[in-house]
Computed example of a mutant assay.
Amino acid sequence: MGGGIQWQQNPALCNIMQEPWEEPDIPDVEAPTPRRALTCLSDEDSQKIYDSVPRTEDVFNLHRGDLELHEKLGAGNFGSVMKGVFRRGGQLIPVAVKTLKQDELPNAESELMKEARLMANLQHRNIVRMIGVCRSDMIMLVLELAPLGPLNKYLKRACGRELTMNKVIEIMFQVAEGMAYLESKNFVHRDLAARNVLLVNEQFAKISDFGMSKALGLGNEYYKAESAGKWPLKWYAPECIYYFKFDSKSDVWSYGVTLWEATSYGAKPYRGLKGCQILELIENNRRLERPDQCPPGVFDIMLRCWRHDKNDRPSFRDIVELLRKFRSKS
C-alpha cells in the first residue's frame, strides 16, 4: 500500500504514530445509580419521552430558562457533558447537555452548530436524539439522556454480571442497525467506539458523539480530514491513517474494533502499543485476538470488518444480517 513511507514523511503523523491518543483509564469507583424512574421504563416508553418533543425550529433554539443543569457526567472533545432537565410545558424531560469548550477550540461554535444541525436531521431509535441548542454565556447541545452511560464504562463495571454475551451481541446488533441507517443517509460517523455507544438500559443502545461526522456530498465517496487532530488511531482503518480518507467502510473497520471492545467486556484494543506498532501488526496481516467469551462466528465478523481493502469489507446492512443469526445463540 505504501502508506508506511507516507506517514514517516509527515511530521504530524510521525507524532501520532509514536504517541497515539489513548482513552483515560476508568477510575475504580462505582458510578452513581441512575434514577429508577428512567431505568425501569420499557424501550418503547423511554423512546416516547423524546419522540413527544416536536422537531421544530422553536424547540431547536432552546431558552436558558427552560433548561436546568445538574451534575457533570463526563467530558468530550468539545467540553463537559452535564445531566439536566428540559422543561417543556408541564413536562420535565431528562437530558444530557454538551457544553462548549471555547478556550481550546477557536472555531468551536461553528463546529458545534454543525454537529447540532446534523444530529437534528437524524431519526432512528438507535441514534441519540438531538433536542436543540441553548445559547447563553456558553453554547449547549441538548440531547436525550441515556441513563446507564457509555458502553465501555458499563462493561468494565458489569464484568459480565449484568450483561451476558447474548445481551452484548444484542446491543451490538442495535449499533449495526443504527450505523446502517447512517450509511443509508451517506453520513460518516468517524469516531465509532464503545465510548460513543450509550445505554438507555441493558438492552437498548444508542450511538452518540457526531462531533467529527460530516454528510457526504452527492457523488463523493469520501471526505478528507483537514488535519490529524486528536485521532483515535486504534479505531481507524489503514486508509484513514495513510490518506486521511473516511467513508462508511472505514466506519465498518471501527465497528469491528467496537465489537471487540464489547465482547471483551471493555478491554482496551492494542493496549500498550504505539501507532507504528499497530500499523506494523496490521500490515503483517495480524489482527486483535478473539476475546475469551466471544463466539467464533462473531469474531469472524470482526475479521471481515478488518480486511485491508475496504472494498472487501461488508456493509453495515451486511453486518446486520450476519449478526442476526447470533442474537439467540450465545
Rank of each mutant, 00 (worst) to 15 (best):
G217F: 01
N196Y: 01
Q203V: 05
K224C: 12
K224L: 15
G217A: 13
A237T: 10
L233G: 06
A205D: 06
G217H: 00
E202N: 02
A194F: 13
N196C: 04
G211P: 13
Y223V: 07
A194M: 02
K206V: 08
L216E: 14
K224S: 15
V197C: 01
Y223P: 12
A237H: 02
A194Y: 04
G211K: 06
W235R: 04
Q203A: 09
P238D: 06
V200T: 04
N201M: 07
N201Q: 09
S213T: 11
V200G: 12
E221I: 11
R195E: 00
K214N: 07
E226A: 12
G219N: 07
V197R: 00
W231T: 10
M212I: 15
K214T: 02
Q203L: 03
N201Y: 04
L216A: 01
L216G: 09
N196M: 08
Y236F: 13
W231E: 03
A237C: 09
M212T: 15
D209L: 00
V197E: 00
L218T: 14
R195N: 06
E202Y: 08
K206Y: 02
I207P: 00
N220G: 12
G211T: 06
A205S: 07
E221L: 10
E221D: 15
E221F: 13
E221P: 05
A215V: 01
S213G: 03
W235H: 01
A215N: 05
W231G: 07
K214W: 07
A194D: 05
Q203I: 02
A194H: 01
M212Y: 14
W235Q: 08
K206S: 02
G229K: 02
P232R: 03
Q203M: 06
N196L: 01
N201F: 07
N220H: 08
A194E: 02
L199P: 06
E239I: 11
K206H: 07
D209E: 10
E226F: 11
W231I: 04
G211A: 13
A225C: 14
K234I: 09
D209Q: 02
F210G: 13
A194P: 05
A215P: 12
E226P: 03
Y236V: 08
L233T: 11
M212K: 13
A215S: 10
L216S: 09
A237W: 05
D209P: 02
P232M: 06
V200S: 12
G229V: 14
A215Y: 04
S213Y: 02
K214Y: 01
G217I: 03
M212L: 14
G229C: 06
A194I: 03
P238V: 12
Y222I: 03
V197K: 00
K206W: 01
L198E: 00
M212A: 09
Y223G: 13
N201K: 05
L216H: 00
N201G: 13
K230I: 11
A205I: 01
G229P: 12
I207E: 00
K234W: 04
G217P: 02
N220Y: 10
G219C: 13
S213L: 08
L233V: 05
A215K: 09
N220P: 04
K234H: 04
G229L: 09
L233F: 15
K230M: 10
A205H: 03
E226V: 09
E239R: 11
G217D: 14
G219F: 15
A228E: 05
S213N: 10
G217C: 10
K214R: 15
W235G: 00
K224D: 09
